[in-house]
Design a binder for these strands. Structure first.
Length: 273
DNA sequence: CGAGTGCCCTGACAGC
DNA sequence: TGCTGTCAGGGCACTC
């Protein structure tokens, strides 16, 4: 599932390809009209000014004051080659080498829509999104204040994108494992001394995964069609009943906020703060 | 308004 | 072999 490292990998590949190119035509393909593809056709004739990222969202400001918003959802793949099936959107570009961009999304969780630049009212998660995890805006002081605002389990709160952006199910589990924090610990009960560590582990896990071009479980591919290599580095996620790399105890799997959640019941004990 | 629940959607896989 | 059931989860609508 694409999280920040996967989206950032895609962004880095899209930027040199798309920046400065004219969208000759933008069209829905095998997708119904609706909020996930709203206004897409209006991108036709506009020039792509940049390829930015905010959390797991790709943001492409356009020349006429609009902004193309792309979210890969669970199975979204962007490619210059026609994948043949599950194509939801297609851009025709002023580019002689790679004149088409295909947005493929088997499970339809993704989005590809147009808004007025910077107007994220219709996208509540983007609208109230926390700081970028790899920026200086994400630091122990800021994070402590954010965590104090919620009694939700720390894992649930991380997935909300509010205290910090871009952390999804895989990297939440990994960062909590690395910080030895139980995923059900209420956010406002995370020990003060653990907060700087959690901040650093979120940064480290995400940065290392970007370095490896992300994590491919099933569907995720880079724009060049490559898989992400970070799957080999996962310590907790997907390792149910396997020994914890730190202490050898079997990794547990529970459900938190409807998501499979992996942790070491010995290392990550501080459930009640 | 914060918090909790369930839905969307379809491929992969287990079990029979 | 082919069918059925289960699982995967980001974001958001809905409810309390």
């Amino acid at each position: 599932m694409p999280e920040l490292p996967e989206v950032e990998t895609v962004r880095q590949e899209l930027e040199p390809w798309l920046s400065g190119k004219v969208i000759r035509k933008a069209e829905r393909v095998d997708a119904p009209e609706g909020p996930k593809y709203r206004g897409l056709e209006l991108a036709s004739g506009q020039t792509i000014q940049a390829v930015n990222r905010r959390g797991k969202f790709l943001l492409l400001p356009l020349s006429h004051g609009d902004e193309l918003i792309v979210h890969l959802g669970m199975t979204g793949i962007i490619s210059p080659n026609d994948p043949g099936k599950h194509v939801r959107a297609k851009l025709s570009l002023s580019d002689s080498e790679k004149p088409f961009l295909y947005f493929q999304d088997a499970r339809r969780f993704g989005r590809f829509l147009l808004v007025k630049a910077g107007d994220y009212q219709t996208l509540p998660t983007l609208f109230s999104m926390g700081p970028e995890p790899l920026s200086d805006d994400f630091n122990p002081e800021q994070f402590r204040i954010a965590l104090a605002k919620s009694s939700m389990p720390i894992k649930t709160y991380l997935l909300s994108q509010k205290p910090v952006s871009g952390v999804g199910n895989i990297y939440a589990d990994e960062a909590l494992w690395a910080s030895k924090i139980h995923p059900l610990t209420p956010a406002n009960k995370v020990a003060r001394r653990q907060i700087p560590l959690l901040v650093q582990m979120i940064k480290d896990v995400l940065a290392a995964s970007i370095e490896a071009q992300g994590t491919t479980l099933n569907d995720y591919r880079t724009v060049n069609g490559e898989v992400g290599a970070y799957i080999d580095e996962l310590k907790a996620y997907g390792h149910k009943e396997e020994p914890c790399p730190r202490c050898g105890t079997a990794i547990s799997k529970i459900v938190v906020a409807g998501r499979g959640t992996h942790f070491c019941p010995k290392c990550q004990k501080n459930k009640d703060g």
